[in-house]
Design a protein around this nucleic acid. Structure first.
Lengths: 226, 226
DNA sequence: TACCATTTGTCCGTATGTATC
DNA sequence: AGATACATACGGACAAATGGT
């Protein structure tokens, strides 16, 4: 019985969140909301905390609870971060998913990019090559390059997934796998990928993107013990 | 100050979870854990609820809190469910991601399936055809078919993502898009896909899987107003 | 500046339902 | 069946932050 009650409570709170998300108003005060739903403040707060973890609402002390467009990237990063810390072999699985997603959306990405996007990407690849020749890494440029690449596909779910991946990479303590064995080659691969995108050469673009991931897989196999 | 304290509390609980995840033991009782961390049971419970939403722990009444390998599917389903209800155009985006993932992993799936899996899939397709001829839907068989198809790839992250998708579909109230315009054709498409998988005919399998999704997209365009 | 009502954050005590031995 | 351990839920109280007067 308690299960169904708790389930109903979650559903009811979800209804309130959806309702307020449209108008942008804050949720009713905990006291009033709890009374309306026929539960104690404690029970209601636990449900709200759960939804907060899913990025549905935020609490501002002294102000109230506010619904917000859900972003699951943080929740994914948290959960999979623990998976990675307990099962190192999850890392290649993560790369496989990113690989499939990026290759799968590459053609759509190429068609939707605008001129300003392409200019930014060119600047980024130039900076990557410059840094590589100085022996420096370019993780931030790498991330921004891929973010822009898929930013115009109009798929906000894809954006959240890719964001979760990059957040995860930044959280990983063992950075050995991120260090490319050949920085210059990695940077030039991005430049070649950019040229293919610029000329809308889908086959070449796919090929260069694939090579980037095979390069990452090579690093992975080198630093990980299965 | 309260932010840093709450942040510390989350971090500390996270450490406990990671520690217990390795051994499989349950977490200390709320009372003792709260005392050890210097907080009240209420505050601790809210943090645990948040982690529960991210699939890190589960609570069994009368027994205790147990750490478990994180499953983010519920969190994704919750978050994206609200996105869907507020922005209907997210639904095709969701299908696009599922499409890219399934097609991208199809070859790997075909190579890793075992005999028992194939038998189950054959039974499922038979039941789908039988139901279709009686004018009945076969959502559960459909879901189970696709679940088995990718269950042997060894990618638990992929499993969680696909699980999130199916949970989402079941939560969607407007079922009009799920009603295939031609049940029999949809069922037979699954049968053809199964045959291609059985004979390890990658090209045909990919083609049939693509057709399934183009069928879904057709339904989507018909029932949705952009 | 100061004050004040509102709202969330936290804590405590108590009773109840459930699981485990 | 009984006893213990534990989570679930409730209500009250106070602290902390916010927003407005």
């Amino acid at each position: 019985m308690s299960e169904t009650q708790e389930f109903d409570l979650q559903q009811k709170v979800m209804e309130v969140i959806v309702e307020r998300l449209a108008t942008g108003e804050r949720l009713p005060p905990e006291k009033k909301l709890a009374a309306d739903l026929g539960v104690s403040r404690s029970a209601l707060r636990e449900v709200l905390r759960a939804f907060q973890a899913s990025g549905l609402v935020v609490a501002l002390q002294g102000s109230g609870w506010y619904a917000q467009p859900p972003d699951v990237s943080a929740s994914i990063a948290d959960g999979w971060n623990i998976l990675l810390r307990t099962q190192p072999n999850v890392l290649p699985q993560l790369m496989d998913i990113r690989y499939v997603l990026e290759v799968g959306f590459l053609e759509r990405a190429i068609e939707t990019l605008g001129i300003s996007d392409l200019q930014k990407m060119r600047d980024l690849t130039d900076r990557m090559v410059a840094k590589a020749r100085r022996g420096e890494e370019f993780v931030e440029e790498d991330r921004e390059f891929h973010r822009i690449l898929f930013s115009r596909t109009g798929n906000i779910l894809l954006e959240q997934l890719l964001k979760a991946f990059w957040d995860l990479f930044n959280q990983i303590e063992d950075l050995s796998f991120r260090r490319s064995s050949d920085l210059v080659r990695s940077a030039e691969l991005h430049q070649q990928l950019f040229q293919a995108i610029l000329t809308k050469d889908r086959e070449s673009a796919t090929r260069y993107l694939r090579e980037q991931f095979t390069d990452i897989r090579r690093r992975l196999d080198g630093s990980q013990t299965l």
